[in-house]
Computed example of a mutant assay.
Amino acid sequence: MAGGARPAEFVEALANGLAILEAFDAGHPEMTLSEVARRVGLSPATARRSLITLSELGYVGQEGKRFHLKPRIMTLGSAFYFSARVDELLQPDLRELVNRFGDASSVGALDRTDVIYVAHVSVQRARRAAAVIGARYPAYATSMGRVLLAGLGDDELDRRLAATEFRALTSRTCTDPCRIREEVLAVRAQGYATTVDQLDYGITALAVQIRDAGGRTVAALNSSGYTGVVTPESLIAERLPALREAASHIAHEIVRYPVLQSVLGS
Rank of each mutant, 00 (worst) to 15 (best):
K65W: 10
M144P: 00
S122L: 06
L89D: 06
A131V: 15
G134A: 13
D103F: 15
T75R: 14
T173M: 00
R66L: 11
K65F: 13
R72V: 10
R146K: 11
S143Y: 00
A139E: 00
L110K: 08
E63R: 13
R72M: 11
T53F: 11
A129S: 13
L97A: 09
D114L: 02
D158G: 02
L51E: 03
R66N: 07
G108S: 10
Y117H: 12
A130E: 13
L76S: 03
P71H: 11
S55L: 04
L89A: 01
S122R: 05
M144A: 06
E156D: 09
R127W: 13
D93G: 05
G108Y: 05
A84Y: 03
A119Q: 07
R172Q: 03
G41P: 06
S171P: 01
Y140N: 08
A109C: 12
S106H: 15
K70R: 15
H120Y: 09
R100I: 09
A150S: 08
R95V: 14
A79Y: 13
L169M: 00
G102N: 12
T46N: 12
Y137K: 09
K65C: 12
R128V: 14
R146H: 02
R48K: 06
T75M: 14
A162N: 07
M144V: 10
F166C: 04
Y117D: 11
E156T: 10
A130P: 05
A126R: 14
R85L: 10
R160D: 01
L69N: 08
A45V: 10
G61Q: 02
S105W: 03
S55E: 13
F80P: 07
A37E: 06
E63T: 10
E88V: 10
D87F: 02
Y137Q: 11
P71V: 11
M144G: 01
S171V: 07
G134S: 10
R146A: 05
S78L: 15
E63V: 09
V86A: 09
D111G: 08
T175P: 03
S83I: 07
D111W: 11
A45C: 02
A109P: 00
F82H: 15
L110R: 02
A139K: 03
T75D: 13
F67W: 15
R85C: 06
A135K: 08
R172V: 02
D155G: 12
R128L: 15
L51R: 07
L54N: 09
R100S: 12
D93H: 13
S106Y: 13
A47F: 05
V40R: 06
P92T: 00
R159A: 14
Y59P: 04
F80R: 09
V40A: 09
H120V: 10
L89P: 07
A109E: 07
G77D: 06
A119V: 05
F67S: 02
D93P: 01
V118Y: 03
A168N: 04
S143T: 01
F101H: 14
L76K: 04
R172I: 02
V118A: 04
R95F: 11
L76H: 00
T53I: 11
S106M: 12
R95A: 14
L94Q: 02
A104D: 11
T173Y: 07
D176R: 01
L69Q: 05
R72I: 05
A131F: 15
E56S: 11
L51Q: 01
R167T: 06
V147Y: 04
I52S: 07
L152R: 03
I52R: 02
A131S: 14
R100W: 09
